[in-house]
Write a protein that binds this DNA or RNA. Sequence first.
DNA 1: TTTGTGTATTTGAACGTTCAAAACACCCGG
DNA 2: CCGGGTGTTTTGAACGTTCAAATACACAAA
Lengths: 345, 345
Amino acid sequence: MPEGPPRPRRGASTIEEVARAAGVSRQTVSNALNAPHRVRPETLERVTTAIRELGYQPDQSARSLRSGARRTLGYLAPVDDPLDPNPLMAGFLEALVDAAGAEGRRVLLFRPAPPTADPTAAIDELVAARQVDGLVLADVLAEDARIAHVARLGVPFVSFGRTGPGEPQHWVDIANDAAMAEVVRHLAAQGHRRIGYLGAAEELPWMAARRAGFLAEAHRLGLTAVALPGAEATAPSAVAAVRALLRGPDRPTAVAAGSDLLALDVYEAVRAEGLAVGPGGVAVTGFHDTPLCRHLHPGLTSVRLPLRAIAAALVGRLLGRLRGEAEPAAGLELPTELVVRGSSG
Amino acid sequence: MPEGPPRPRRGASTIEEVARAAGVSRQTVSNALNAPHRVRPETLERVTTAIRELGYQPDQSARSLRSGARRTLGYLAPVDDPLDPNPLMAGFLEALVDAAGAEGRRVLLFRPAPPTADPTAAIDELVAARQVDGLVLADVLAEDARIAHVARLGVPFVSFGRTGPGEPQHWVDIANDAAMAEVVRHLAAQGHRRIGYLGAAEELPWMAARRAGFLAEAHRLGLTAVALPGAEATAPSAVAAVRALLRGPDRPTAVAAGSDLLALDVYEAVRAEGLAVGPGGVAVTGFHDTPLCRHLHPGLTSVRLPLRAIAAALVGRLLGRLRGEAEPAAGLELPTELVVRGSSG
DNA sequence: TTTGTGTATTTGAACGTTCAAAACACCCGG
DNA sequence: CCGGGTGTTTTGAACGTTCAAATACACAAA
């Protein structure tokens, strides 16, 4: 697999050249970079100037080889179901890259190779090639094979999404149930007493938690609540189910959805029944606060995720583990924010 | 910035250990890996077995340091406008990672650091630290500072989106104008003679091209066409503009939108005017074929981008340049696919 | 002056791999 | 039996950095 002749490195200077320019030795330049306090201020100044003038930056490969630290975090991109794409993958990745960058770390993206699509094999390759210091996982399922694998391997990792009770608790997550409870309270405050919910029940932990949070809070407030299953991929049946609910006795005056896309189906069902979306007709809410929410009419009330805070917490915890600091005993749950728009008030 | 004591490397074996196990020298193992034809079949067999049994993979840092090849491609994530997020960022990235992986390359994600958000500085850092062999850029604008910068630096790169006439033509793109022309022909085939268009005119090259393609093809077919500006961020005014168009004389029977999100505004305008979306009322089309299309009622006709082909072409061209092969003289334009749904037929 | 102590700097070695060239083994024609 | 390929394997060096230990320096105490 020759890459061809190693092209001449564009003006890339080495530590030796900087040392010569500053009239010091290799190691002093290294110290100026990695342990400035060990260098006399006057010398530091001279070295810094030379570094600046030569545009020097340490070769990351050489640095990694010698020190063992890769300064890179791996992000295992979830195998995306094209029918049910993760609506916040892009936003989360951005936040993750920024959070890592703020700590001087880069993010290496990888995915299971398409034919087998085996995530554990992908992890093994990356780890064996020593390309990353640690891993960030997302979309964690119950009994997740990836978590079990990295835990067994002893690879430092954190996950966006909580891990099972028997596994290491290195996760950051949102409080899905509490978020839906807030939605319910919001609807109750608007005077709704009969409310519906559209969203899958079991397959995905976060969807299950939203549903459970909905039902629990509705019960606590003494509301009449009906939860419908809604598979993201089967829009027609979801619409039909909501329409039937709206036609039945005790028609709900509000319907919460487990995602923004599902809320679209609710919009359709409400209108097909000759009703209006909004506080006067049937109130609707979504989840994720995708750009879609602002483009709907009326705008869709939704739950916004603190992606930047999540990413920062993940990176912080992972770097903490890498430094060998005492590990926090439990996962971290971050609060969401309810964004109210015309669809509910 | 110490990473702490270099943790003991989990069972990571070295080339020396493999060599010992197979009873050969360092270099023979290296050859078995990088130039198998130079190794006697019998020896190759023995080495391969040892590699498998020890789970050996070459340390990427050591390999990079010596050979100069990083086996990693950098992807400069566009600075995303939260009001107008790139709807295919996630899908494109997936495709890119897979395409790179198929060639044994990884993708390193990076973004301009938030305070200054200067992309050229981010590029300089990555290149100076010699972390990647080449760059993939996206969302290329006219007179793009990033393109000019990498061209001046001499960094190997390719871009998703065409570069200006004076710049190197290392791009892969879709034919935005041809895609919209196909939409127009589709609508004409459905009997529409008066059609409207909603989409920005100038800021973004791809939006300008879609608009131009729309107008050109409508003119060629002798249709009556009206194009409205539609800033993604200002939904209310877009809706008002479409409504005015629908109320005016010579009401169009079809409206094409420059993106799926803008099509939502068209849906709203059509309904607000008491009309129906679809072939019977006002036909509507979008662009990008996001999951949204399937969740609308009726489903939204849209233009699907060949993201996997684009990614494969980009990676192929970039690796070609790295191998020093003769460069294709011009950019590559790939065809889109019109996905017809209920909104137009 | 000597000794000690701490700080600042330098030197030799090592990280794990591939490159370049040398060594070895074998076969062929003379 | 020798010289010259050709094909395979080994050896020494190098990539650019940081680690670990050694050295030089400055200054105070003996």
